[in-house]
Design a protein around this nucleic acid. Structure first.
Lengths: 218, 218
DNA sequence: GGCTTATTCTGAACGTGTTCAGTTTTGCGC
DNA sequence: GCGCAAAACTGAACACGTTCAGAATAAGCC
């Protein structure tokens, strides 16, 4: 069956690009299924390649390394989560705004606590892969979003600090990151979102209220 | 030269224990030298075993895995640093007490920025090795020390927060951990301690002062 | 269609961390 | 000294992540 001039494809893409896209999707699906089924460490790259129906070497033309496969899977979802978290400005109390935003992340990570642990483990410090770098940019974007949230709260009078929005954003993110780690580290069972958010709220409240007495010195 | 009855050893230890102690020391020295010389990733366990004059398998009776070797080397020093950091109570301003304590850690990590990065990378989440667990206990101990510092500051009137000492200790540690990571992540050159502490101070000051306006609402 | 070039794919081969069955050494009672 | 059980040691073997020289395939051109 040769020279069958393009069935119905109106795409400007050649069949090369389509092949790549399909393979990428198969690799993504295979990796996701196996990572969830067997965990990150117990999944071998050979298995992923086999399940995706590609050669072992091919895997590494789509992802820089095994780590990158993990990010390849979750980056899209994670960006969607972030988009939802920082969607529209709110008039609620600043602390409630923060908790509402972070709630999205807690809910997302609670769905795959095991892999969440790995993502949070692997994100510390620089990595080589393209997707890993995307992950880190995404992280920085969250800080920027938090800074923007601080800026608005300042305007509305809910916040009045003598520091730049960005530095404050970093501080908020640091507390969130530490809390979510502690929340996920607890054990292998399904983590309790509500409980995690209560603890996070207490911690963030310290930052908002401050430690020093209102008028005291020393 | 047989039956030479113990040259001058007054130790109650048999020569077995002494042999073990010596080997452990040789392994420590070899690992430290190579890690510093070539970096963590570029050092192989074979090299370490060879340099230490032991078989490859022997290495893993002294450390659970390669990671554990890293902690095996630095745990002692790190505990000494912590002891110095939290030595005696001070009457200085709370923020100055904190900076003075963390200064010890910054100075220590600045000596081996490359390996420091690895330690901070590897410490996230549970690990198998004995030394790695010791490292985590050490981490928790710092939080406890910070909580104690908070308790004293409360008594002296420098701090007046509606939260438990331990929760506050965790928050302080979270901010410190995030800052020291950012400080070390910047590049491969020697990090500037002074600069790092300035940033840390700004961040911790936010926690102490708080974000909310003193009397305002909303 | 044929030819050439660029892209993509592939699995054998490599390097490395880790294990473990077998060997060597030590401690100890006689 | 002499056996003998326990402890410590060892390197060949294994499993896995990653690389790369060459094979296969698509694209472009006549």
């Amino acid at each position: 069956m040769p020279t069958m001039i393009e069935p119905d494809a109106a795409k400007p893409e050649g069949q090369r690009a389509r092949g790549k896209a399909q393979k990428l999707q198969r690799i993504r699906d295979a990796a996701r299924a196996l990572f969830i089924e067997k965990g990150y460490d117990d999944t071998t790259t050979r298995e992923i390649a086999h399940r995706a129906g590609v050669g072992l070497g091919t895997l590494f033309t789509y992802a820089a390394d095994k780590r990158d496969l993990l990010f390849l899977i979750f980056n899209d979802e994670l960006e969607a989560v972030a988009a939802r978290a920082f969607a529209e400005p709110s008039n609620a109390l600043f602390i409630d705004q923060l908790i509402a935003a972070f709630h999205e992340f807690y809910a997302f990570f609670a769905k795959q606590p095991h892999l969440a642990r790995f993502m949070l483990r692997e994100l510390t410090f620089y990595v080589a892969g393209v997707e890993a770098r995307r992950f880190q940019r995404h992280r920085e974007q969250i800080v920027v979003n938090l800074a923007e949230m601080v800026r608005r709260a300042k305007q509305q009078g809910g916040v009045d600090a003598g520091e730049s929005d960005l530095v404050i954003g970093h501080a908020i993110f640091a507390l969130y990151a530490a809390e979510i780690r502690r929340w996920l580290a607890n054990d292998d069972s399904e983590p309790e979102i509500k409980q995690g958010l209560v603890t996070l709220r207490r911690t963030l409240n310290i930052l908002i209220t401050g430690l020093a007495p209102q008028h005291g010195r020393r």
